[in-house]
Nucleic acid binder design. Structure first.
Length: 371
DNA sequence: TCTGGGGTCCTAGGACCC
DNA sequence: TCTGGGGTCCTAGGACCC
């Protein structure tokens, strides 16, 4: 029998802040949403009682919960705590999969000899997370990954739900279809219009079940990764030159991350969002994959000038790299030499930044305009 | 001073090729 | 005087997740 434990941290970013500053215990705490146009990233359960939830605009959260403690995001700190969490999970099984910064899947199959029944082990893990790391978590224990995830989401906060072998259908039948990972508001509405409200009803409709409930076929690990950087401007822009300066900073960020991972991108995309929230993306695929700021910038600048609407103000700009390759492309020898020296230069800059901070080297105006 | 930023996956149309 | 048609790549948009 296979046993999957899905572990999901409760209000993870808030919990990390509390682990570092116990004075926050018991108070409504909100991470993110401080800047003018920011949104809530994580809200403590005290804050949620006021109606605050993640993705809510900051100004709204402040209105609903003015006495909350607002904290800025500290990504590095959360990543460090995430490592601690997964280090603890790995004590209980050699097979632990990281699903996100605050979610993991522990395969407890065959660990009975070492740790006792999967249910006891699951309890133990949730308890240790709380006691050793001060990280409250919820768990779902089931014979299937999807089921375990659903169970964990229903166990929140700080609970554990166990779905015994053979009781899967009984467990699922009465639940709304929205509990299925991948079924969001749109799909839920579409299903509701067809008279399908619960997972049980969905299971009876073979046509829909195939589309939404394909629990068996697991996705292959052939993911075509992508990475990007985007920013909502504190103030919307109307001058193209000002947009280009922002774009260059985004390009630098993406280029640095590509080089850090030893990746080259074949497809570069620009994202533009106007004040009225109309959003467009325009992409270019290149023959020679690149990780060079100057090449990426030249592409996105071209796309910007070609597609930006002159009389509308821009509130967000983004640069994304996709169709990422580790190696395997064959430029001509001449190009290769030339590119290699550029790559070396950028890597040198990356190194200095890592050592002395992002402000150590800034690009001159000539580069910004030059492409 | 309304509506973040990091991603993945899917669909659909058109170009192009055989 | 008729519209095949399958496969792949590129592009754009959108749903969804944390």
């Amino acid at each position: 029998m296979r046993w999957c434990l899905h572990v999901d941290m409760d209000a993870f970013f808030v919990s990390v802040e509390r682990a570092l500053d116990p004075r926050l215990d018991g108070k409504p705490v909100i991470v993110g949403g401080k800047r003018g146009r920011g949104v809530v990233t994580s809200a403590s359960y005290e804050a949620r009682r006021c109606g605050v939830h993640s993705a809510m605009p900051g100004f709204q959260a402040r209105k609903l919960c003015p006495h909350a403690v607002f904290l800025p995001m500290r990504h590095d700190v959360y990543r460090e705590y995430s490592r601690k969490v997964f280090f603890l999970l790995q004590r209980y099984s050699p097979i632990v999969r990281k699903l996100s910064i605050d979610e993991g899947l522990v395969d407890l199959s065959g660990t009975e000899r070492l740790w006792g029944t999967p249910l006891n082990t699951a309890h133990e893990i949730i308890t240790r997370l709380k006691e050793e790391l001060k990280m409250p978590a919820s768990g779902g224990l089931a014979g299937d990954e999807t089921l375990a995830k659903v169970a964990a989401s229903l166990a929140k906060p700080h609970g554990l739900i166990y779905v015994p072998d053979g009781s899967e259908n009984k467990f699922l039948a009465a639940l709304p279809v929205g509990v299925i990972p991948g079924v969001g508001p749109k799909a839920q509405t579409a299903l509701l219009n067809q008279g399908v409200e619960t997972v049980g009803a969905l299971l009876e409709r073979r046509d829909f079940a195939r589309r939404y409930l394909d629990l068996e076929t697991k996705r292959e690990e052939t993911r075509d990764h992508s990475m990007g950087s985007e920013t909502t401007l504190a103030e919307s822009l109307s001058r193209v030159e000002a947009m280009e300066e922002v774009l260059y900073r985004l390009v630098e960020d993406v280029g640095q991350r590509l080089r850090a991972d030893g990746l080259h991108a074949r497809c570069i995309t620009i994202k533009i969002r106007y004040d009225d929230f109309e959003t467009l993306t325009r992409s270019r695929t290149v023959d020679v994959p690149t990780c060079l700021d100057r090449e990426i910038f030249s592409l996105v600048r071209g796309l910007l000038r070609q597609h930006v609407t002159a009389d509308k103000r821009v509130r967000l700009l983004g640069v994304h790299a996709s169709a990422l390759l580790a190696r395997g492309w064959q430029p001509s020898l001449f190009d290769f030499q030339k590119r290699l020296s550029w790559e070396r230069l950028y890597r040198g800059i990356d190194g200095l930044r890592e050592k002395y901070g992002d402000r150590a080297i800034t690009t001159g105006a000539g580069w910004t305009k030059g492409g």
